[in-house]
Structures are given as C-alpha cells and as structure tokens.
Amino acid sequence: MSKIYGEERTTIKALNQVDLEIEGGNIFTIMGPSGSGKSTLLNILGAMDKPTLGEVLVNEIDIGSLPERKLSRYRKETIGFVFQSFYLLPNLDVIGNVLIPLIPYRIKDKDRERAQELLNLVGLGERAHSKVGKLSGGESQRVAIARSLINNPKVILADEPTGNLDSETGKSIIDLLIKLAEEEHKTIIIVTHDPRIAQVVGEHPLGKNIWIKDGELSEKPTYDMYCW
C-alpha cells in the first residue's frame, strides 16, 4: 500500500509500498522520525485517510474502498483513537467525555454502567463526575483511553499518547495500554518516537516494534533511525 501526496512533479511518497500484517490481540509500536509516515499509516489504519495505491484489508474487507457512511461505522465499531492532546470537552464531566462516541445515539443506563466500568479500569472510577479541567495530564489521557474503549473496539490506535506527559506518567499510560491487550485482548497500535516505549513493548511477549523511515517499513532499526 502506498500513500502519495501532491500531484505530478510535487509528489511526496508518505508511504511507499508498505506491506504489513497485524494480528489481533498484540501490541505494536510504529517508530520513526518526524515525517517518516508513521501518523499517515495510523490514519489509514483508522480509516481517517485512504491509500493512493493498494488495499487495507480488515477481516478481508478493503476499508479503502468503503463509502464515508460505512467508514464512520467502521471507526465507531472497530477503532478507538487516542491522541497526544487528549481532546476532552470541557463542558462535560469525566463520564460525559467517556460517553462522547455514543452521544448521537440514545445513551442508555447500561452505557453509563459501562463508562463507569471503563473509568474503574483506567483508575478513575472515583472521578466520574469531576470536571475535566481539574484533571492532570495523565488522568486526562486515561479518560481519553476510556473514551476510545466505550464502543468496545477491537483496535486501539494511539498517536503519541505519551507526547504531552512526563516520563513516569507516560509509562503508566503505556502500562495501561499493555493491560488492555493482556486483559481485554485489544489490538494496540502505538505511534511514537520514544525509544523507551519501543523497548517496553519489544520486551513484552505480545509486543512487536515496526520501524518506519521515508515511508518504508523495517523490522529492525538502522543507525540513522535513531538520529532524528
């Protein structure tokens, strides 16, 4: 699969003939320097962008060819996104933010119960009705993770989830994501340029690191991959 931006002479190959197979229930990191194409890869996996060439098969369905309506459904049912900047809505309390993906549909009592369970899972069970403005960075990211889980997706895509956190808090977030793979059997894909995360994931039995540079994948890093 390739992703090319621009036209004719000004084209940029963000992803070049990427061939990647992701097995469910594992943890992946996509490591690489800025501009290497790792976020583009994540966006395509999350159906937020489409490849220029090739296919992205999820359970044998090419999501690149799905219309927008079906993509929304795919995102809702299959994918949970976690972003670097949390993006919690300040006018909702903690549990309200967890329930955001369900707002367009009728929120039922069982949904609230599930949101509370997820908050318990991420360690914020006591803060369900707190204002999000009073949360620390780590707590906010935990709420964002709970939000990504509310639809019970099979895959969690995390784009630099520790980018705005100190190292200790960042580690607790990675531990939480690993826990989701271990206990909830989620497939976790983390985009990062933090080698410490790659090391933690690489040492885990379910973990696998993927390295990317100039839009091309490699299973082992080369020296210049560290020189970003």
């Binding site: 927008e68 929304s72 995102r75 809702k76 049912e77 996104f81 993006y87 955001i100 993906p101 707002i103």
Partner: peptide, 15 residues
C-alpha cells in the same frame, strides 16, 4: 479539531 475527534470516534457527517 473537536469535530475531527468526534468524527474519529464514529460520529457521522450528519451527526
């Protein structure tokens, strides 16, 4: 950005 996040969580255009 907020709308982009909502879309990423499965909100449709019409929502």
């Amino acid at each position: 950005k907020e709308f982009a996040i909502l879309k990423s969580t499965g909100w449709k255009n019409r929502h």
